[in-house]
Every structure is written in structure tokens, then in C-alpha cells.
Design a protein around this nucleic acid. Structure first.
Lengths: 146, 146
DNA sequence: ACGACTTGTAATATAACACATTACAAGTAA
DNA sequence: TTACTTGTAATGTGTTATATTACAAGTCGT
């Protein structure tokens, strides 16, 4: 299993919106070209980012822009915006443990707290990383290309 | 996306093997009853746990047993045994970023280290939790049932 | 040694989900 | 008003997870 590529696509999108903001209108068509994905995918991702207050767009009006500074957008914000992991959690618990077995009827409760701690660790690390980190790293790599 | 239920099934299996070890032979049929899944699923999970040196079985001979103490089996060991996340990592990076775009050809490298840190955080927490924790919690819950 | 039972594994079916694609309504701006 | 864009619904396609059937190979009690 893997976290959906919509996550890395979203980071790519935000990076492009910042990187190209002075050069040109950053349309879904343009982003689709850079990301290498269908423009509709781009638009649905942007739609989620917009709902989360991360980017600004308006129907008919061409181009997207950022709603807040890069250092105030964390990986966690994007992960949440895209609902990468839903309310049932990171782990898929088997659905039918047998309630007539003592282990079967208690194992879920016995594990839940531990599974939540693992998910929390992952999310805590995601909160530490901002789009400012990604954009500055990307810009450095571009400058180093020669 | 979610981590496969084979993970929680494996924890359930190890817990049962320990819990019922004095009462009865813990066969794949019996485990299938407690877990609420097909015996073949149980056997394939056990096959991985065996390859990882966590349980002991032998063909024809009925029942499974543990290959090492519960406090030496971590969630990480089981997660690795079942190959819950393969070598391409926790995140699915979009496949076709455009190499003719400066952002497109650098975003992958710019993100990789950060994505690895997130996965490492998750795995570090998995190493902290042992099956001894789960079994003792499960036993306490069974005793508290009355 | 035989029969009942179990493990181990291959092959296939089904359902769920991710991503791609087509289509089009609604809005904006020159 | 024309050309372009956003927003979104509907559908197609491929991949993966889990279930299931089937059967070879091994063990153990009798």
C-alpha cells in the first residue's frame, strides 16, 4: 500500500505556483504538463487545496495563486486537505474478529491505542516539514544544474 | 489508503498462539475462526511470519508455536515480515514529472529525503511496540470482562 | 501401513480503489 | 461575443486486497 500520488502531485503544484508566479499564469493545463498527469486530476487536487485554504482560484479566471506563505503550509496540511488517510485510520483492521473468542473480542481494543500512536508519529513528522523547505531545496537544485 | 489488514491479522495470530498454547493445537482452521478470515489467508500470513523467524510450523504437523519471546517481537518485525510497504516506500510519487520543466526534473530529489523521514518516524514508533504489550493488554481486558 | 488431518501453495474470482479520460456547464476577460 | 479557463460529473481501465477452490505433500495415531 502507498499514500496516493495526489499527495506528491499537490506538493509539486504548490511548488510550481510559487516558482512560476512571476513568469506566467499557472493554469491546470500548464501544471498538467509539468506534473505529467491529466488536467482533471490537477483540477481536483487544486479543488481540495482551495477548500483547505492553501491556494486561490476562481472559475473562469485563469491561474492559481497561494493563499498563504510557504512556511505556513506543512506536509500535514496537504495530507489533510487531500484526505490521504480517512477517519478509519492508517491501519486496516480485519473486519470480522470472532466475538465468541476471548482474543477475538478484545484484540481490537488492545491494539487501537498502539496503532494510533504510530499514525500520530507519522503525522507529527509531517507537521515539521513545510513547503518553504521543498521550494528552497528545489530552487537550490535548479541553480546547481548549471 | 491503508496498511493491509494482514498486519492486524498477524498480530491477532501471534496473540492467539500465545494465549491458547496450553489449551489446544492452534491450527490455521482454529485461527481462521478467531480472526474471521479464510484459512488460506491465515496460512499465507503464517508462512511470512515463519520466514521471518517469528513462528514455527511444520507441514503435516498440527499447530503453530512462537519462535521467540513476545517481548522480542515488535510491530516493526511483523510489518517487515509481511512486506506491508515495499521498497518504493510509503509514498507513491507521481510517475511522470516533466524533465523539460525545472521544477518537474528536481521535485522528486527535493522531496525524497523528507518523505523518507516521515516513513522513518512511523517505523521507529513501530519498533517501540512489542507483542508482549499487546498480549498483556489483551489478557487484562479478558480478565476485566467478568 | 493406512486413514484422517494438516500445512503449503498455485490458480482464479471478486470487489474496491486509484488514476485517466471524455464531456460539458459556468464563469472570466480581451 | 469569442476564446479560454475552472469545476465537476460520469465512465473506463488497470491494479491490488481478500476470498475461495483445489490439491500435493507431510505427520500422527491407530
Amino acid at each position: 500500500m502507498q499514500i496516493t500520488s495526489r499527495f506528491t502531485i499537490a506538493v509539486h503544484i504548490v511548488t510550481c505556483i510559487d516558482y512560476f508566479k512571476e513568469e506566467q499564469k499557472v493554469t491546470s493545463e500548464f501544471l498538467a504538463g509539468s506534473v505529467g498527469a491529466n488536467p482533471v486530476i490537477i483540477r481536483t487536487v487544486i479543488s481540495r487545496l482551495k477548500a483547505a485554504g492553501i491556494v486561490i482560484t476562481s472559475q473562469g479566471s485563469s491561474g492559481a495563486s497561494l493563499a498563504k506563505p510557504l512556511d505556513q503550509i506543512t506536509f500535514y496540511d496537504i495530507y489533510k486537505a487531500l484526505d490521504c488517510i480517512d477517519e478509519t485510520g492508517l491501519f486496516h483492521f480485519h473486519e470480522n474478529p470472532n466475538a465468541s473468542c476471548p482474543v477475538g473480542r478484545n484484540i481490537h481494543a488492545a491494539m487501537d491505542e498502539k496503532l494510533a500512536e504510530i499514525q500520530t508519529s507519522m503525522e507529527a513528522q509531517m507537521k515539521q516539514i513545510t513547503l518553504a523547505d521543498v521550494v528552497s531545496d528545489t530552487r537550490n537544485r535548479i541553480l546547481a544544474e548549471v
